[in-house]
Design a protein around this nucleic acid. Structure first.
Lengths: 128, 128
DNA sequence: CGACTATATCGACAGATGTCAATATACGGG
DNA sequence: CCCGTATATTGACATCTGTCGATATAGTCG
């Protein structure tokens, strides 16, 4: 097994998931069943933080709702009205959280929603 | 209709919801159906931010998993290992976001999970 | 009333976060 | 091979956030 020091744990999992065709796993059981442990809370909070920004929510939504469910940075800069470096920054956070995946084709970087990523984040929030 | 300047919009909605016996409404449709608008993203990000902290996740979970689904500040300080003012601060954020409700009985302030609040946050994340 | 307890608020402070301009890197085309 | 374009990285900066100790507020019980 080769180490992937440049990839976060979440991004690495997302990549493995894509290769295997499986869906990302939820971090933990339902919050309401029994008290979440501190380490589980850290992991879950990291994922929620990645999503808890109006710009990043819009980026995820635009990517997911796009033709072919993918978009490049150049498609995203104008809709959110921010500079290219800022958009790249947000996309990096979303990718490292395992929410988006990045594929480079030529000069362009295409981003896609990782299948099941949002559902995995939602899972601990629903009662049963 | 009386104004409630001391309560956030979310807390006010949560209170109305409790009075009517209804469940909190989701901020918007599924992220993946069509692109979320900027104002919707702001509202949704505010709710996610309230939850996107390891301490607050644990507080919500401890409250929800408690006997009688409620807990007072004194029950919560020790489990999370933080000072009382800090715990009060986090509880205020959760209450203003409409996730917890606060009831004062005697000297104690009891916090409960607002029914349906977590599901309302999860709703836009699930595909259909 | 006066002491004690539970909670909230305030002020301060370190560290995280979102943003941009400038720059670096990588790729494709003449 | 050099230029133009797309993206990523860096450095700087203002703002937000989580934490604490100190203090204020409010309720209980002698």
């Amino acid at each position: 097994m080769i180490e992937l020091p440049l990839l976060s744990r979440d991004a690495a999992e997302a990549e493995a998931v894509a290769a295997a065709g499986a869906a990302p796993a939820a971090c933990c059981g339902p919050l309401t069943r029994e008290a979440i442990t501190a380490p589980e809370a850290d992991v879950f909070a990291r994922k929620l933080k990645a999503l808890a920004d109006p710009v990043r929510l819009r980026l995820v939504s635009i990517v997911a709702a796009s033709e072919g469910q993918e978009a490049c940075v150049c498609d995203l800069t104008e809709p959110v009205g921010l500079s290219q470096p800022t958009v790249s920054h947000h996309l990096k956070i979303l990718t490292e959280a395992g929410i988006l995946s990045r594929t480079k084709r030529g000069t362009w970087a295409y981003f896609r929603l990782v299948p099941g990523a949002l559902e995995a984040i939602a899972a601990p929030l629903v009662s049963v």
